[in-house]
């Protein structure tokens, strides 16, 4: 691996998976100091190396909202895992057709 690419990779990123509920804290504003958070379900992780992105979906005021984050972006302050989900698929695009009770995901409990 080329060193300069390796330097940009975020190694502090927690290991979250599709099906997990996360809170993504983004640095925003002119001085990149204000923290803006986006909370929702991870429905997919895509790409490789620096191109890796993940999609977070949530319902906001009755409307489905999806946001794609660049996993290695320095603008991501942190990603908190709120709940681990138990899913059988790598991409949860079927969640786009569901809302309310149908949009529940089983929680993965670690014993």
């Amino acid at each position: 691996m080329i060193e300069m690419i390796d330097k940009q990779l975020r190694k502090d990123m927690q290991d979250f998976k599709p099906g997990d509920d996360v809170r993504v804290n983004m640095r925003s504003g002119e001085d990149k100091k204000r923290i803006q958070s986006f909370e929702g379900l991870v429905i997919g992780i895509k790409g490789e190396g620096l191109n890796k992105t993940f999609t977070v979906r949530k319902y906001s005021f009755g409307v489905g909202v999806e946001k794609v984050f660049s996993l290695h972006s320095p603008l991501i302050d942190s990603v908190e895992i709120l709940k681990r989900g138990k899913v059988r698929r790598a991409k949860l695009y079927y969640m786009r057709k569901r809302y309310g009770k149908a949009a529940r995901i089983k929680e993965k409990r670690e014993y």
Binding site: K32, L50, S70, S73
Partner: peptide
């Protein structure tokens, strides 16, 4: 690939 510059902006680059 891509590159994050000092502002955190993603820039398309060729190695």
């Amino acid at each position: 690939t891509r590159w994050f510059d000092s502002d955190g902006k993603s820039v398309p680059v060729t190695l």
